[in-house]
């Protein structure tokens, strides 16, 4: 066995070792309590950093930043308008004047549901260790919390028969108010998200619809006062199965 170095200890705390080396470091730590205490402290520092700063991921992005990310030599495309709808809180319509935002923040924007959902999917699904605000372990608390914020009883569908497990969820600021996002993952690390927002615009609900937004498959529908969009970069047939399951469980 190679000697355990200081760098190995850091890589262990950061979860960066390959499995074989990880076992060797674990064996070393079992016999070296001072090193074990340091490694625990470092891992705790990482945890504290996430606790202190992850909130920044969920805040609506200020308009000047969205504007700064916009190519000037091209007219505002649909992606840009949708990004604004997702990330800018309600009431900023006036600020959006002249930026092509007006259309996106108007209430009749429910056609934008799949695009909003796809964007929220690409923003949050690549997060490695902290993809969600509330873990699935606290599923009851998670659903109660998001239900309260949306002012509607929500359900997190169970995708176990489809091979996807609930990771947790987070609250986002959408173009029309708060939005809940549930995230699921399968054994291969593929992720799908369910985006839920209030959608009073379409009373009585809609049927099942499908869209493809920038490489993301989105199945969406409106049921009673809520709009749902399931997004994932997975095969359409798999998405279809998941969406059917969600639809069945939610509208039951």
């Amino acid at each position: 066995m190679r000697d355990i170095t200081e760098d190995d200890l850091h890589a262990y705390a950061d979860g960066l070792l390959e499995p074989g080396r990880r076992l060797e470091v674990e064996a070393w730590l079992a016999g070296h309590p001072e090193d074990a205490a340091r490694v625990r402290a470092w891992a705790e520092q990482n945890r504290l950093l996430h606790e202190a700063f992850d909130a920044a991921l969920n805040e609506p992005v200020p308009l000047p930043l969205l504007r700064a990310a916009r190519l000037r030599r091209r007219p505002a495309g649909p992606v840009w308008r949708v990004a604004a709808a997702v990330l800018v809180a309600v009431g900023s319509g006036a600020l959006g004047y002249g930026l092509g935002l007006q259309a996106a923040v108007e209430p009749a924007a429910h056609a934008a549901l799949p695009r909003e959902a796809a964007l929220a999917h690409v923003v949050f699904s690549p997060e490695v260790r902290h993809p969600v605000e509330v873990q699935a372990g606290e599923a009851d608390h998670l659903v109660a919390w998001l239900s309260k914020r949306l002012g509607s009883q929500l359900h997190a569908p169970d995708f176990e028969s489809q091979g996807f497990e609930l990771l947790g969820g987070r609250l986002l600021a959408g173009g029309g108010g708060p939005v809940a996002q549930f995230m699921y993952e399968d054994a291969g690390g593929r992720r799908v998200t369910l985006y839920v927002r209030r959608d009073a615009a379409a009373r009585g609900g809609t049927g099942f619809r499908r869209a493809r937004e920038d490489g993301v498959e989105v199945f969406y529908w409106i049921d009673r006062d809520l709009g749902y969009a399931l997004s994932g970069e997975v095969a359409r047939a798999d998405m279809q199965r998941l969406a059917d399951a969600a639809y069945r469980q939610i509208s039951r």
């Binding site: 700063f53 920044a56 991921l57 990310a69 992606v79 990004a83 990330l87 964007l119």
Partner: peptide, 21 residues
């Protein structure tokens, strides 16, 4: 996805890092 959309996608994480920094 085009480049511009890709920039937008990274804003939340750039903000988190800048805030901490």
């Amino acid at each position: 996805m085009d480049r511009q959309a890709r920039l937008i996608e990274h804003i939340p994480r750039l903000r988190r890092y800048a805030r901490a920094l």
